[in-house]
Design a protein around this nucleic acid. Structure first.
Lengths: 222, 222
DNA sequence: CGACGGGTTGATTGTCCTCAAAGCCTGTGG
DNA sequence: CCACAGGCTTTGAGGACAATCAACCCGTCG
């Protein structure tokens, strides 16, 4: 069932920003990945562009000794794997069981060639990625552990629901590798924020977090 | 003499990648900035795109308490200040006395609208910025001080001359704010690399550095 | 039940930061 | 021509924050 191509759906597949895949004339298909499986590897040819239909994905780079930096998490609706050269610059893995829609990169480029709206849209997505990376450099280079974790929670809240109730799909180690910390430091920071009354833990696992005092978190985020 | 617009030059102004400003039909002018002066500020409207003719520029973000993260150094030939939305996301300052060529952003966009080659070229530049930011996230999140400094020297060598003789335009504090370190840690790392025999200092100031053992530096860079 | 993955917490270590002092070079002004 | 101030860099001493090492808890699943 998993990691198998499904038939192209009849309904239009929306790319955020108002374009539809069917309108633009692509074929698209869906694919399922089990938790922990690789979607593509760093330096592999970039044949497809992906959109998360359900689940969540991490994009990361590795150093030769195994140190890992996660550059981004991709949540429902997000496009990822868009490269302007032919090679993926990250490894992408499903964090949980995940369904993605695939677009053939060459088709996208072909259509974008004659469709300025799509071309502009692709540029906008690249620009958004750039902006995220720029902000993340500031976090990684200059923020304390507590500030990083607070910023992370606010980012996830904004991107998941925005209502102050965050159901994290990723484990502490993933968060740590995203924030340039260790999992213990992330855990300690969360405990400290809990002690401060900035958040509460809800579920039986510790991944459902209620942001009780977002102002306090925002103040920490500087 | 400084900070004054000069007449548009008669010779074609090359944008790296083979386009010429005159061919594309832009007006361009040159501007001089003294060492330490601001070229544009974060969140200012992005009216111009810039190319370094001589000198060097730092692009940075600040936290409210003054912590600074330099996202990139712009060296001779580099284009900077290219934004796809209307707002600059960094502050740009001349590191030394610097001459830049200005292109009106709106003209670029207008021309790009009917010139696919230019449009593709602008996208390539944005992609290069993205790639640099992605690599820098790995450095900031996961590399040690020594590895960061080694990587920095190799980057500067590659971008300045590639011959192993690096004349740094920036001070230790700038390097530190680029690498997410303090200036003392940068200085200590350079001393250590010197003791290891990986580099030599040449000039009377400590900014001319000979990369004696690039393999050793590359090994540190992981 | 028992193994395992995930999470928290404690003790200790280590890397890098902070604070401080001193050296060097440049430029300036007497 | 020399004295001196200021910017930049190096180096040292001590401290702090996050990493490491380790123990333990909890829930899930075979």
């Amino acid at each position: 069932m998993f990691a198998r191509v499904n038939a192209s759906p009849a309904y239009p597949s929306y790319i955020p920003g108002g374009l539809t895949a069917s309108h633009a004339g692509f074929l698209s298909s869906e694919f399922n990945y089990r938790k922990g499986t690789e979607i593509y590897g760093e330096k592999e040819p970039a044949e497809y562009v992906y959109q998360v239909i359900s689940g969540a994905v991490r994009s990361y780079k590795l150093l030769s000794d195994g140190r890992r930096q996660i550059g981004a998490f991709h949540l429902v609706g997000d496009i990822f794997g868009l490269e302007n050269d032919d090679i993926h610059r990250f490894t992408a893995e499903a964090i949980v069981d995940t369904t993605v829609r695939l677009f053939r990169r060459l088709s996208l480029e072909r259509v974008a060639h004659s469709d300025p709206a799509l071309a502009r849209h692709l540029l906008t997505m690249t620009t958004n990625n750039l902006q995220h990376a720029e902000d993340h450099m500031l976090l990684l280079g200059r923020k304390t552990a507590l500030e990083r974790v607070a910023a992370f929670l606010l980012e996830m809240d904004r991107r998941l629901t925005g209502v102050g109730l965050v159901a994290l799909p990723m484990c502490r180690r993933d968060i740590a590798d995203y924030l340039g910390l260790t999992l213990e430091t992330v855990s300690r920071a969360l405990s400290k924020l809990h002690a401060y009354g900035a958040l509460d833990f809800l579920g039986s696992n510790q991944r459902e977090i209620m942001l009780v005092d977002r102002d306090q978190l925002a103040r920490l985020d500087t």
